[in-house]
Amino acid sequence: MNELLLILGMALVTFGVRYPMLAIIGRLRLPDTALRALRYVPVAVLTAITVPAMLMPEGTMDIRPGNSYLIGGIIAALVAWRSKNLLLTIVVGMAAFLAWRAVVGSV
C-alpha cells in the first residue's frame, strides 16, 4: 500500500514537471531572452550534476588521487574533448574508472 502511494506520488510529480512546459509553453510566444537562456540549459544542468559527482563522490570534497570518480572523469573529459565521440568517451572513461579504482582507488 505504502509502496503504491510512493510510486503514484512520484509518477504524478515527475509527469507534472515534464509535461506542462513541453505542451503549454510551446503554445505561447517566448521572449527572446528566454530562448537565449534555454540554449544554456543542457550544459548548465549536466555540469551541475556531473562536477559534484566527481569532486565529492561521498558528499565531501575529495581531491586525493584515490578518488576514482575524479580521475576517471578527467580522463573521460580528455577523450571527449579530443574525439568528440560519445561512445568512445563512455567506454574509455568507464574502463579508466574501473581500472583506477581496482589499482589505486580508495573511492
Partner: peptide, 26 residues
C-alpha cells in the same frame, strides 16, 4: 512518503527546463 515525493519534484525540476527548451519545436 510526502518528503520523498517533494524531493522527487525538486530533483526533476530540471525537466521543466528541458520541456521549455523543446516546446518551440513540438
Amino acid at each position: 512518503i510526502g518528503v520523498i515525493i517533494i524531493t522527487t519534484f525538486v530533483v526533476n525540476l530540471r525537466h521543466a527546463l528541458y520541456g521549455a527548451s523543446l516546446a518551440p519545436y513540438v
